[in-house]
Amino acid sequence: MKSYPLIHQLITLVEELEVEQSGKEISLQQFTGFLLNKASSAPNGTNSEVRFGNNDEKTLEIAFQLDNNIGRLFVFMSRYAKLYIKKALEDTPLLTAEDFTALAILMTHDQLSKTELINHNLQEKTSGTEVIRRLISAGLVKQWDDTKDKRSKHIAITENGRELLYNVFKDMNNVGKMITGKLSLAEKFTLQYLLQKLEDFHLDHYERKTISSKSDLKNFIEESLHA
């Protein structure tokens, strides 16, 4: 039984809590609080990551620190999502997830400047410009000069773009369901709440351009720890 070491560990923790409670009967709520406290204060020494070996304990210790582990899982989730989105976009002019999100953003606006769309799509100028170029070339987006500033271009979705997007939405719904896996409805609401909280935090920093260098990142973390 692969989980026997974990079961043994849980029994040991129950015994520890019983001693702490002078032998009194323990409720599930009490044990849950006790367990969370233990989990938050103890280093994560378990290598449950199938990609990692066991040759360097220091590397594993760093990788499985709580914040690092969450960050790594976010990266993996992003890559899984891109794989599913790529499948959903097969046989369409849309090549990447960024193509799809750019078109979806344009669907909700009468028009935008190129810079506005690139910022909304959380892209760098070079890659964002390439996405817009592809969409225009495919006839999904149209562009025109700003009447007040000839250097600026405005863009909007075309009817062909709208029609394509409505068709793609059907497959993208499947992507959303695949990404959330076998989470229960309650788990999905909890995850949505936590992700939205993180989105609000990061979007604020993105829009204010507070993190533009490695030193900015270091300074922000140090200030947060001392706040």
Rank of each mutant, 00 (worst) to 15 (best):
S22W: 14
Q9N: 09
I132K: 00
N160A: 07
R133K: 11
Q123P: 00
E90D: 08
S184I: 08
R208Y: 03
D171Y: 07
Q111D: 11
R72A: 13
T59A: 15
M1E: 07
Q29H: 15
L13K: 07
A97Q: 07
W144N: 05
Q30I: 06
F201P: 00
Q65F: 00
L36V: 13
S212H: 07
K38I: 13
H120I: 10
G33Q: 07
N219P: 09
T129D: 12
L35H: 04
D216Q: 07
V168G: 00
S224Q: 09
S22T: 09
K142P: 10
F34P: 02
L195N: 09
S152R: 12
I136W: 00
Q196T: 12
T12M: 11
N37P: 03
E199M: 09
S213E: 08
N68Q: 15
I85Y: 00
E20M: 05
G176N: 11
K142Q: 11
G45A: 08
S27C: 04
A63M: 10
K188V: 14
S127A: 12
V141D: 01
G53L: 10
A138K: 01
H109Q: 03
Q21N: 14
E15A: 08
A81W: 02
T147A: 15
E207D: 15
A156P: 05
K153M: 09
L191Q: 06
V175T: 06
L191W: 02
N219G: 10
K197Y: 07
I7K: 07
T92R: 01
V141L: 03
L60F: 03
E61W: 08
Q9E: 14
L6E: 13
